[in-house]
Design a protein around this nucleic acid. Sequence first.
DNA 1: GTCTATAACTCGATAGAC
DNA 2: GTCTATCGAGTTATAGAC
Lengths: 191, 191
Amino acid sequence: MRTVDPVRHSAKRRHIIDTAAGCFAVKGFERTTVAEICTAAGISTGSLFHYFPSKKAIFRAIFEQDGLDNARVLSSASGWAGVLSVIDHLVAPLADRAVAGLVVELVAQAGRDPSLAALVVQNELALRDGLATLLSSCDIDPSVPPVTAASWIQGLVDGLYSRTSLDPSFDPAEQVPVLKQIVTRFLRPTS
Amino acid sequence: MRTVDPVRHSAKRRHIIDTAAGCFAVKGFERTTVAEICTAAGISTGSLFHYFPSKKAIFRAIFEQDGLDNARVLSSASGWAGVLSVIDHLVAPLADRAVAGLVVELVAQAGRDPSLAALVVQNELALRDGLATLLSSCDIDPSVPPVTAASWIQGLVDGLYSRTSLDPSFDPAEQVPVLKQIVTRFLRPTS
DNA sequence: GTCTATAACTCGATAGAC
DNA sequence: GTCTATCGAGTTATAGAC
């Protein structure tokens, strides 16, 4: 008889990931202690290490989850409206301004951990190719190759994150429509 | 009577800055030793510390120099051609792909050094405002505020750096014309 | 906790420009 | 003669091994 409910297990895992992401975003990776994550998540350290072997593993899991989320959103998107919905999904985390700091932490840690860097590259390429496939089915300017278009959508999203973290007067929520306008004028100049 | 030649002095300073920037770009800040910088620059450690009080000061000076360069280019630019020339200047460092790693180092160090972070913010805002002033004198879409347009040009340049460091198949030199096309379609949709 | 290796930084001396 | 640029061995702090 198995007493473990796989649904509960992954829900709890997800809860720890989300809580830890919030901590890392605010305080950075090194400065966040495992004890803080446990307190914030309302669990014991023993319980946490039942789900993750190390603090690094939690950090890594955040971005594995991110890759899975992107894949899910991509698979349920279609047409030009789908492209815009993927953009919405990519920028949604910025509703909490601190996540711009989380990305900074990611890049910093990736510089010190090649396997984390490999995960980042893998996620980026998967997103690029998924977006490119989606764009192929849209009525976009035929002079722009879909992979180029996809890369630049990623680049614009990167720019939104970068501006948010570097310019205190830059309000990402207010700038999302501008981002979509730029994408639209680039890829569908006549519409 | 002054025996110091200010031209020679600043030329040597500049030489050290450029050499160190190359080292930092390749190996990162912590992993490059001042001995390596000295060897690369063809000077002794004693000489290096005659020009800079610390290794951190050299790193900081790279971005102070960058801010000065940007200000110089901005002041000699005018009209739409000036906007494009500023973009050329901003992306020029990517001719050496390793500099994408230098900005990663900058972000990582800024996270640990508030005074460096302050310098970064100051440079970003100065560039934004300089670009906005330049754009005000251009014939751009009046529905886009110049400060918004300037921020997004910075965002696109950030995106180019970010894609270059994250996607090995992304060739920045080849993508610069695309960047300009995006900016043009965004700000001058009719031309 | 102690030890060692490494790397940032110091200092006194020297050479040469004015 | 004075003042500056240069040198490089020496000092000290620290990070990692055991």
